[in-house]
Design a binder for these strands. Structure first.
Lengths: 148, 148
DNA sequence: TGCTTATCGTTGAGGTTGTCAAGAATTGAA
DNA sequence: TTCAATTCTTGACAACCTCAACGATAAGCA
């Protein structure tokens, strides 16, 4: 895939550059929070995808993580060895294995989502008006993009 | 360090959750762009820190990357083997080694910064007014945070 | 001056993430 | 049935990352 020549407006570029900078600075904080639960980022990422009510086939995890299927095997191994998930037989197709949250895993997932959405100081310190404006713009951003 | 109990406003939390989601989706795009130059994310991150005019001591790279010094050794090894940086003697202190960009490395750094600030479709598709508002809010965010 | 302590970068061990290639089991279609 | 495609696993390999230990150097202090 060819990298598109830079056509983005300087304004959008500056805005995204700032987001990137804040995200980068926020990363170590998130990793530290996850470490309290003994989770790495990819493990937390996978855990987040699992709805407590609805197990997912491993190949769908790989799709969503945009990674090789063999990678999911290893991540699932580690989550399973900690008792956070379990492998179940796939309904209908005996090739697929479904990943399902255990009760412990469901609790861990709650904390993971909590940590991932916890805003960094830069955002939390914004005025209520700025926070609302930011939220609304971002809502429009994902809404518009989904309909591209 | 204890994880702070969630005191952030639901609005800030939603806004940051959306940022997180966009960043995550944007990540594979960035990685693909970096791969065209044969760079991994940590390598690109380190490259970005190096001003063409001002070499940095390795320990400062480790500080900014928030990682162990021994990790920088490996990353520098790989960047050096590709001819993007070179190790120089530290001025004054013979223990420190400075990392300096080669001309090739300076060009690679330009492309890295370009790729890292390239906004994802969600942001690029925003109206000019929204882009400006987003930029201004984020400017305030980092400005306020630096004075906390 | 010497001794001690601290710092800087490297090395080696070990764990996690990630890719690719190959393989067993299963499915589905010719 | 036979053949091709899929689902997951395994093994090999590379990069990233931490920790502990080490040599070289620096800095403080008796």
């Amino acid at each position: 895939m060819q990298t598109a020549p830079s056509q983005a407006s300087p304004i959008a570029r500056e805005a995204w550059g700032t987001v990137f900078q804040i995200s980068l600075a926020n990363r170590w904080r998130l990793m530290a929070a996850l470490e309290e639960y003994g989770l790495t980022f990819p493990q937390a990422h996978a855990l987040r995808l699992l709805d407590p009510e609805r197990p997912l086939p491993m190949n769908e995890i790989a799709d969503r993580l945009v990674c090789d299927a063999s990678n999911v095997t290893g991540i699932a191994d580690r989550l399973e060895s900690r008792g956070l998930i379990e492998r179940r037989a796939g309904a209908g197709d005996r090739r697929v294995k479904m990943l399902a949250l255990t009760p412990t895993g469901a609790e861990a997932r709650e904390r993971v989502i909590e940590a991932m959405t916890e805003p960094p100081a830069e955002i939390a310190a914004l005025s209520p008006a700025d926070q609302r404006a930011l939220r609304d713009i971002l809502r429009r951003a994902v809404a518009d993009a989904s309909g591209l």
